[in-house]
Design a protein around this nucleic acid. Structure first.
Lengths: 363, 363
DNA sequence: GGCCTTGATGTTAGCGGTAACACTCCCCCT
DNA sequence: AGGGGGAGTGTTACCGCTAACATCAAGGCC
């Protein structure tokens, strides 16, 4: 090639340090040399600066292509203080809701040219949350999106405060960062009112675990609907979101002949409830009506197909991202709270309570 | 404070550039000054070098704590060429299998002190895969784990080759990188043989989409089991993994009175199949036996509880990570292929075919 | 026509770490 | 006593890129 830089004779011959680029590829200086410009001009091309002559720009671009040049993110981050990386802290990443939200965030981030680093936490203790925030920030994340479905996580986030933008999901208190959430209270109300309209005297509730924001909002929505209708409110039964727990709690309800309508806080638990009712010989919807929450893709094919409250998780993810971008690139509105509407999807798991028997009520 | 470095009088006063650290926190030099050592010693403490006197180490640690020092990853990456970040390319991240695998990877990565950057792809075309690889490498990922469930993705990965370590999931050909996969062929064989042992003359198959490696391996395993038993093999029906498609295809099978046993390539489709059979008035397991695949958490609570093939997705994720670490930190074995065993979980969706009727067969 | 813009590009000095090497001590051995 | 060697620490030169400033040519203005 003949383009090796000459070492001045006799100078102390230092070992060339290993390059930081992947596969030892070209670096900016190589591109600059090849295009016959300075490194700064290459940098300008890279960053779409307007003050570069079109032909120079093209020459640099060509050199980049020919050398297979790939900018080194760590160097750019170090020099500019921006990484175009977003950190995401998530819990329970294998469950449908969080997973779908995460997918939405990822997709939107990609479109906006950001990379996403995810830390999936299992424990919700403050040390874990703080550690995750630290690692993400240390990594240079420009901002953090935290799925904070439990009060404890929300509190830990406030504790672990830092200078960078943050968006949280679900977290219900404190106007410190923007929050995105599905409208759980309203969804629960819709579900409950639907069941009441079908003639049920009251509606039982199988709730998500205590301390979970969405779970508690659904309890509130359910309770409010009952109160408005002057219906009795039994104490809710608290599950852990799993079909297993839905089954266990469903059996308790199945053995209570007064129970004719159940609102379950998510579809997975509803699966277990349907089984418990079936095994106890109580027909759905003839004897008992069931409404779930989330509208998982399987909900339409359960036996019977499940009436449920749909949340657009992908939209939640997208809104998180757009709020984050607002903070990063535009003027942030402080303390925004975005609520994603829900929709009751009518299927076959609910029936009229009518002369002790029931007819199917279809949307 | 009094610790501001003095500018020599009259020197050209340059504006201090914005710090790259989050929230303008302390940097290594600050820690060094406070602990009364050089930056290099701080670096040694940070990296657990053995050659530091315990009391010095403690002094440095104290200084770090007091200043809330957080090392800047981009600087470390730039200087060392290692980022302790792994890139993950995933598809279909909202489905149970991939999501659970991803969770396993994340968890294992965290334990090993690595951060994970995920790119979720929707299209499997070469440009998308190549772009994802580029972005991950540009970000400084030390290695890439690619969930490559389709042939096309595997091919694209080979094309997008690069110098860094890689581990792929499912990808069936080419010994270029280590591969981890659930043992789909064996799982399918177990399922099929189980049904045959119950007395079914043959077993129908609802398969995953063409081009998906796991789907095709399950077809192969199913076909092999039938062949060994000398049973007739109907042409499989190809779904798209969704409960919707399972329902559509299930209806075709439901209307065929000869069909007494169905092996479905995943549990979601099996949900649809169960519904289709139910609606057609065919009882499970009395008239038709059904086996699914994956053992999603809801499988035990379907009506009837679904016999299925369990794969330990978390283990798959962990193995991916350990293979990656082998490549990064130890002597890599080239072209390893790790197969995660499967287990047939017996529940109530299968019955003996016996005098035209069926009795339950329970493990 | 000299002076001030403006556009295009180059030069310099970092960003915050780490690798390689240099330099002290201090102990041990002969 | 002299020297070898290792433990502990400091010095220097980068890693690859970008911000700030400097430079330089071409053009507009009075």
């Amino acid at each position: 090639m003949g383009s090796e830089p000459e070492d001045e004779a006799g100078g102390p011959q230092r070992v060339r340090r290993r390059r930081a680029t992947a596969g030892g590829g070209a670096v900016m200086a190589d591109v600059a040399r090849r295009a016959g410009v300075s490194g700064q001009t290459v940098s300008r091309v890279l960053n779409d600066h307007p003050r570069v002559r079109p032909e120079t720009r093209e020459r640099v671009r060509a050199a980049m292509r020919e050398l297979g040049y790939r900018p080194t993110a760590s160097a750019r981050t170090l020099a500019s203080g921006r990484s175009r990386t977003l950190g995401v802290i998530s819990f329970d990443a294998a469950r449908f809701g969080p997973a779908a939200t995460l997918a939405g965030i990822n997709e939107a981030a990609q479109e906006a040219g950001y990379l996403v680093s995810t830390i999936a936490l299992t424990a919700a203790d403050q040390a874990a949350v703080r550690g995750a925030v630290d690692r993400l920030l240390g990594q240079g994340a420009d901002g953090i999106i935290a799925i904070a479905p439990q009060h404890s996580v929300g509190e830990a986030l406030v504790e672990a405060d830092h200078g960078r933008p943050m968006v949280t999901l679900d977290k219900s208190f404190g106007a410190r960062f923007p929050v995105v959430a599905g409208d759980s209270a309203s969804g629960a109300r819709q579900a409950t009112e639907h069941l009441l309209r079908l003639g049920h005297r009251t509606v039982r509730h199988i709730a998500g675990p205590v301390g979970w924001i969405a779970a508690e909002a659904r309890v509130d929505g359910w309770r409010a609907a009952l109160k408005d209708a002057g219906a009795e409110a039994h104490e809710p039964l608290f599950g852990d979101w799993s079909a297993d727990s839905g089954y266990d709690l469903g059996r308790r309800i199945a053995h209570d002949p007064d129970a004719t309508a159940v609102f379950v806080s998510n579809d997975q638990m509803a699966v277990g409830v349907l089984r418990a009712l079936h095994e106890a010989g109580r027909r759905v919807p003839e004897d008992v009506s069931v409404v779930g929450y989330d509208d998982i893709p399987e909900a339409a094919h359960l036996l019977p197909p499940l009436t449920t409250v749909r949340t657009d998780f992908a939209e939640i993810g997208r809104r998180c991202l757009s709020l984050m971008l607002d903070q990063l690139e535009r003027t942030p509105e402080p303390g925004v709270r975005v609520t994603i509407p829900t929709e009751l999807v009518l299927r076959e798991s609910c029936g009229h309570l009518f002369r002790g028997s029931a007819r199917q009520a279809q949307g």
